[in-house]
Design a protein around this nucleic acid. Sequence first.
DNA 1: CCCTGATTCGC
DNA 2: GCGAATCAGG
Length: 241
Amino acid sequence: MSWTDERIDALKTMWEAGQTASQIAEALGGVSRNAVIGKAHRLGLQSRPSPVKPNEAAPLDIPAEAEPEIVAAPVAAPASPAPAPAPAPAPEPVTAAPAMAAEDDTVENEADEDEDEDVAAAPVRREPQQPVLRSVGPGGFVRQSPGEQQPPSTPAPPRRLVPAKPSPEIAGKTTLLDLNDRICKWPLGHPGEPDFHFCGDKVNPGFPYCVAHCGHAYQAQLPRRDRRPPPPLPFGGPRVR
DNA sequence: CCCTGATTCGC
DNA sequence: GCGAATCAGG
């Protein structure tokens, strides 16, 4: 399995969204957690708080007390409830699938679609290989253990595979696949919901978000006694169920 | 033990 | 460049 542009892009997005290397590896399929980490580093992606790196304190000069240090605000940073990837797309179904789409990795699509669906209305760009996003609960990830995955013993779908159909609500919105280095990755809505999408505005250069959302994600670090108790609203409020 | 990311180093 | 092996903290 090689690092195609799509896979690299997915890696970047998920890494920046706060997914763990394991989750990313599982979502991409065909790569190990180590491979994801190695690739992320080679790409120069910024390290997220590592359990093993106590953070190298700058031994150089500490006198700069003039400006308030900018830190990522954990409250507003949309790091935790990132889009949870769908089950691993079963990279190489070794069992000869009869007459499947040849070129691309096929999305796992157990939902049987009948043919008369009209998908032409959605101008949303679709990559067949991209894992479908799914999530559970407020801020919770879906971790799928190997045991609960689709048994590979049923790899021969009797029906033709149809690319996952994005919901009508997502039409025209910025989806995961639309993300790149230039557009705001601030999530709107909740992963797994039909209209979950991203801000999509032009980024504040050097940041993953637009100027407005940078204002949410990055806040001046105040002295402790002046801090407000952080409102736990990572994504604009708990999911209503 | 499990998890995590970082790093190394042979390929 | 890639990723398994290894390390080390939680």
